[in-house]
Computed example of a mutant assay.
Amino acid sequence: MQQIIYFLIKNSYRLLFLLLLSISLVLTIQSHSYHRSEYINSANSLSGYTYTQISNIKEYFGLRAKNEELAQENARLKQILFNKKDTVLNGKIKVPNILSDFTVLQARVIKNSYDKQENFLTLDRGSLKGIHSDMAVINDRGVVGIVDKTTKNFATVISILHTNNPMNGKIKNSNHFGSITWDGKNAGYVQLIDVPKLATLKKGDSIVTGAQSYIFPENIPIGKIDKIFIDKNTNKFVINVRLFNDMTNLGYVYIVENKKKREKEIVEAASEKGTTK
């Protein structure tokens, strides 16, 4: 204790200077918008850099698992190619016309939360690479989330594990659809609600994105039906869906932009406005 007191007395001028310097910096940042914005930008850049370095270390130790995933994905793609007659004969893939409506970018997850009620991810790409809000985020296993905000070099994503981020989903090979939501309980499951009782479904059926979505292409995998309930208030199905994705272990993702999103919004809004006259 005496040594601590002696240290404080001996360095009192230095400590007082550092204290006054810190107070002056805080007051300057709080009272000047320019300094405050520069501080926030610097903090965001530092956070993004830190997340990148941490992610690089984690990725280094996970190279074997990542290589195995890539090998599995290549095998799946080869199987698809080998079973397409036009691909075998011509050596070219015929791209469906619908794909011309979407652009696809690649990014890497450098931060990921999954244990909160409202979870977000951070990507190592931003507006400089063409990423902006309301773009779909997927990977080879299915839906991940929706881009929320961007800076020049980073983007945040609203995770599918978010209690206030509904998206359109449907039963695969069926026109019955509902809303994908999350009850905030289990990171391995989401819920498909508002499905009419006329729908034919069973445990194990696949759930995919629906055609009503402005953001996601149709038929992107989400998960499989695990349990089926009836909502007594709405008399509709509530379906517990086991996610295909392991949302606690995300690496590379694809960011998809629907180039006709705005056009679809305008025409549907015009129709709805006309019906209310």
Score class of each variant (00 low, 15 high):
Leu121Gln: 05
Phe154Leu: 12
Asp148His: 12
Asn119Ala: 00
Val143Gly: 07
Asn153Asp: 15
Ser133Lys: 14
Asp134Cys: 02
Val137Leu: 08
Arg141Glu: 12
Ile160His: 09
Phe154Ala: 06
Leu161Ile: 07
Asn153Ser: 13
Asn153Gln: 14
Lys170Phe: 00
Leu161Met: 10
Met167Asn: 13
Asp124Cys: 01
Gly130Leu: 07
Gly169His: 02
Gly145Cys: 10
Asn119His: 01
Ile158Lys: 15
Thr163Tyr: 08
Asn139Pro: 03
Gly126Ser: 04
Ala155Pro: 14
Phe120Arg: 06
Gly142Leu: 09
Asn139Val: 02
Asn168Phe: 10
Val137Arg: 04
Ile131Glu: 05
Ile158Val: 12
Ala136Glu: 07
Leu123His: 01
Phe154Ser: 09
Val137Glu: 10
Ile160Asn: 13
Gly145Gln: 08
Leu128Lys: 08
Leu161Gly: 13
Arg141Ile: 00
Asn153Arg: 02
Leu123Lys: 01
Ser159Tyr: 06
Gly130Val: 09
Ser133Asp: 08
Val157Cys: 11
Leu128Met: 09
Val157Leu: 06
Val143Arg: 07
Ser127Gly: 05
Met135His: 03
Asp140Pro: 01
Ile131Gly: 06
Gly142Cys: 06
Lys129Asn: 14
Leu128Trp: 02
Val143Ile: 10
Asn165Pro: 00
Thr163Lys: 15
Ile138Gly: 06
Ser127Asn: 12
Thr163Gln: 14
Gly169Phe: 05
Ile158Asn: 15
Ile146His: 04
Lys149Glu: 14
Asp140Cys: 00
Val144Pro: 10
Phe154Arg: 03
Val144Gln: 08
Asp140Val: 04
Ile138Lys: 01
Thr151Cys: 04
Ser127Arg: 14
Ile160Asp: 12
Glu118Met: 05
Lys170Cys: 02
Phe154Tyr: 15
Thr156Gly: 07
Phe120Gln: 06
Val144Tyr: 02
Phe120Asn: 08
Thr122Met: 13
His162Gly: 07
Ala155Glu: 13
Ser133Cys: 03
Arg125Ala: 11
Pro166Ile: 03
Ala155Leu: 10
Asp134Asn: 15
Asn164Asp: 14
Asp134Leu: 12
Thr156Pro: 08
Lys129Val: 03
